[in-house]
Design a protein around this nucleic acid. Structure first.
Length: 461
RNA sequence: GUGGAUGUAGCUCAGUAGGUUAGAGCGUCGGAUUGUGGUUCCGAAGGUCGUCGGUUCGAGCCCGAUCUUCCACCCCA
């Protein structure tokens, strides 16, 4: 036996049962997207690095998979870069393409490139894999699928509300109990402003994003390490500790952020959004979470994150408003907002909570045992008629032992087996065996199709 | 990118203080049953012990490197 082959770190194969379950998730999400009027697009796995670099922060740039240029890729590299083993410089010279890191940035590029062919405000969805050169962990892979929906070309907050509606419906259909956390980057900017540290918004948001995980003490330590003055910290803390329902938090914020125009704008946006949501009749809980920051730099308004209430696995869906992503690619003034569903994590949560429906896979309904050449000739037309009438049917390809053929049908979970040997052929009939009860009857081909077709609709096999 | 754990048959794992031909269960294949599956019984195949190198008379076991998987951090879906 040769060395067992393997696949790259952080990637996975999917067996038929897993694929069926994944498709159940994708199909559910897709249906909801359609219901809200979104249209599907696809973009290539690889993008030019100039498209990807600088959009996700330094950390994100490090996690980009780069694709080595074709041909003699070292020919144009300056000798001193090679001599000094300057990896960072060399990689810029030998790779100008990379695998996409998410679906949002390539979509911004797509919008700019195809603006003349699209109807704005444009609602698109996209279900494709993305790649990150991260170190794999539980619920974290190097290749994983994202299911994105975005509205672009409108800054109405009704779009934000619709996204929350989509989130609500997707997780309701999947049977998952979740909470949607909502915040606004302008409010975060206002907070940074009010405590006298407007330039430090990134450090501040990254740190307070960890509130829930590491607690106030550690957040305070981290911010102090980053050089935020003690007085600023003292003014920040009461903000993070705001309590009460969303309405009272907003009231308190209005007073605290009164001197920050950006902050007040953010509060107004949040008030409008939560106002819309009241009319949506959501089942999912929504809450204002001032510690929600999200790492991606391009967000400018609302930000969302969805957590499972029953499993700790990080966020299973996230997104936000980005006012100027298209601007980076030369199309300013086009605002967008979107969310991304993390299919892999949703899969893991559904698995652990045992929430998949019992039969997500479509197996064969009717199996024909192969008795040899003469019987094949007799059965093939019956098989064709079964398929024409909509049955999922197959014939065993070889004249193997009955035991082996029935075991194949059994292991594949096929509910009906048809046998036709000499005696059946003599009568122009087939023996139909029910693999659950073990019963078998002699029927005509017409009866066979009727029985399997009729039973297939409501049989719980 | 940093720190820690792990790696023995297709799968889950044993393997005693380094000592001849490395074991089990499950699965696979064959037979009992030449037209009847999930049970049972019998039998067989299957491993350069992740990889490379080192220590030793001798390494699955000790040491180093590397890769995989997992955990924590960073970050994130």
């Amino acid at each position: 036996m040769a060395q067992t082959p393997s696949i790259p770190k952080g990637t996975r194969d999917f067996l038929p049962a897993e694929t069926a379950r994944r498709n159940y998730i994708f199909d559910t999400i897709r249906e909801v997207f359609h219901r809200y009027g979104f249209q599907q697009v696809e973009t290539p796995a690889m993008e030019n690095l100039s498209t990807l670099l600088g959009k996700y922060g330094d950390e994100g740039d490090k996690l980009l998979f780069r694709i080595l240029n074709s041909g003699d890729f070292l020919a144009g590299v300056p000798g001193d870069q090679l001599a000094t083993r300057d990896s960072a410089a060399v990689v810029r010279s030998v790779a100008d393409k990379g695998l996409r890191y998410d679906l949002t940035v390539p979509f911004a590029r797509f919008i700019v490139q195809h603006r003349n062919d699209l109807v704005f405000p444009f609602r698109r969805y996209q279900i494709q894999p993305v790649w990150r050169a991260d170190r794999p962990q539980k619920g974290r892979y190097r290749e994983f699928y994202q299911c994105d929906c975005d509205m672009i070309g409108s800054d109405s907050l009704l779009n934000e509300a619709e996204l929350v509606g989509i989130i609500d419906e997707v997780f309701r259909r999947l049977g998952l109990r979740t909470v949607v956390k909502i915040n606004n980057r302008k409010v975060l900017a206002g907070i940074a402003e009010v405590i006298g540290q407007p330039q430090r918004i990134t450090d501040i948001t990254v740190a307070i994003d960890k509130m829930e995980k590491i607690g106030l003490e550690k957040v305070r330590e981290e911010l102090a390490e980053k050089g935020i003055p003690v007085e600023a910290l003292a003014r920040l803390e009461p903000l993070l500790m705001l309590s009460g329902d969303t309405g009272s938090k907003l009231l308190q914020l209005r007073e605290i952020l009164a001197d920050s125009p950006a902050g007040m704008k953010g509060i107004a946006e949040l008030e409008t959004l939560f106002g819309y949501l009241e009319g949506f009749g959501l089942q999912t809980a929504t809450e204002l979470d001032l510690t929600l920051a999200r790492g991606l730099h391009y967000y400018t308004g609302a930000i969302f994150e969805v957590k499972s209430l029953d499993e700790q696995i990080g966020s299973i869906c996230g997104g936000g408003r980005y006012d100027d992503l298209a601007g980076i690619f030369g199309m300013p003034g086009v605002s967008g907002v979107g969310v991304s569903f993390g299919a892999e994590r949703i899969y893991d949560v559904l698995t652990r909570l045992d929430l998949f429906p019992p039969h997500t896979g479509e197996t064969t309904q009717l199996f024909f045992v192969n008795f040899g050449p003469r019987e094949e000739a007799y059965i093939l037309p019956v098989l064709a008629r079964a398929r024409q009438s909509g049955l999922r049917a197959e014939i065993y390809p070889d004249h193997d032992k009955m035991k082996k053929q029935l075991n194949y049908a059994h292991r594949k979970g096929i509910p009906w087996v048809a046998l036709a040997g000499e005696s059946e052929m003599a009568e122009g009939k087939v023996t139909l065996k029910n693999m659950v009860t073990g019963d078998q009857t002699l029927v005509t081909p017409e009866e066979l199709i009727k029985i399997v077709g009729g039973a297939g609709i409501n049989s719980e096999l």
